[in-house]
């Protein structure tokens, strides 16, 4: 039979408040109160949902290999494409969003105008239309431009669907990200920048060392939200010849006519991606220290 101490430790690990009153928690001495980082359970309570969905997918594939295991084998390269598309796009989205956000708060009227125009135009066009434009219209535009300036490399331009899909996603999401960064930077108290400037720091130094590190904490939840939306919106690239998870699912269904199984599994696979991402984002939010 487990000793009393065993149960005491279980309680301490999993309950949000320290259970034992008779024994002080081991690390209590050097502990100082840090807002937002209370010494509570390290385990994110929503991991159970991730585990449950992964378990469901696994059980389906083990006990119903026909069709679930076959579907999975067929669509797994699409799953890789979806993940790659999301991660690569997101890196560029962050960069473009940061540039756009800084442009939106710039005092220089030209920079401010260009970044505002970009945000206003891109925000007003559906992502699907933008992706279709980049895939069907952009190559034709580039080719005619190449013929006009007699530049063969452009005139004979052959489009790469994945590159154009990344371009479309980055330009669209960059506009939303620019607004998130702008709001994040503006949410930092004006006095922080003034204090930095009064110590002789340049505009860029005060941005990089004082404003942005604090803004990151503010923008982390909406940026995480964008990441999860991006995972799902990559499914739109299936209409522009990119063999992502959704497109591979459609191809399998066209050959085998089993929509229920195919789309249930595809939905579950997207759910695994988004739920895991949500947990990672939640973990990132909790480990911001100050």
């Amino acid at each position: 039979m487990p000793s009393r101490d065993f149960f005491k430790n279980v309680g301490r690990t999993f309950s949000r408040k320290s259970a034992g009153t008779d024994v002080p928690p081991p690390a209590a001495e050097g502990l100082k109160f840090i807002p937002g980082a209370e010494p509570t359970s390290r385990l994110d309570p929503w991991w159970w949902l991730v585990v449950a969905v992964i378990l469901l997918v696994t059980l389906l594939m083990i006990f119903q290999p026909d069709p679930y295991w076959h579907i999975f084998l067929f669509v797994r390269d699409g799953l890789v494409i979806t993940i790659e598309l999301t991660v690569i796009s997101f890196v560029f989205i962050i960069i473009l969003g940061l540039i756009g956000g800084l442009g939106r708060i710039a005092k220089n009227p030209v920079i401010h105008f260009i970044s505002s125009l970009y945000v206003e135009i891109i925000r007003g066009i559906p992502l699907l239309v933008q992706l279709i434009w980049w895939y069907f219209a952009a190559p034709a535009v580039i080719q005619s431009f190449g013929e006009w300036v007699h530049w063969d490399a452009l005139a004979t331009y052959h489009s790469n669907p994945i590159v154009l899909a990344v371009v479309g996603l980055v330009i669209c999401y960059g506009a939303y990200m620019a607004e998130i960064f702008r709001a994040g930077i503006e949410s930092i108290h004006k006095g922080q920048g003034e204090a930095a400037r009064s110590l002789g720091m340049s505009y860029m130094q005060s941005m990089v060392f004082v404003i942005l590190p604090q803004a990151i904490r503010v923008v982390l939840p909406p940026v995480g939200n964008e990441f999860i939306m991006l995972i799902k919106d990559t499914s739109l690239v299936s209409v522009v010849a990119v063999a992502d998870l959704t497109r591979r699912g459609r191809e399998f269904m066209a050959a085998h006519f089993n929509p229920i199984e195919v789309w249930t599994l595809i939905a579950l696979l997207y759910l695994v991606l988004t739920l895991v991402s949500a947990r990672v984002i939640a973990w990132l939010e909790r480990r911001r220290k100050y």
């Binding site: 108290h189 006095g191 922080q192 204090a195 400037r197 009064s198 110590l199 002789g200």
Partner: peptide, 21 residues
Amino acid sequence: INAVRREVGMVFQSFNLFAHL
């Protein structure tokens, strides 16, 4: 202007300490 600011320290009503440091 930063050369001037280096020589002039300022203390604010609302402290304005860098919150992340």
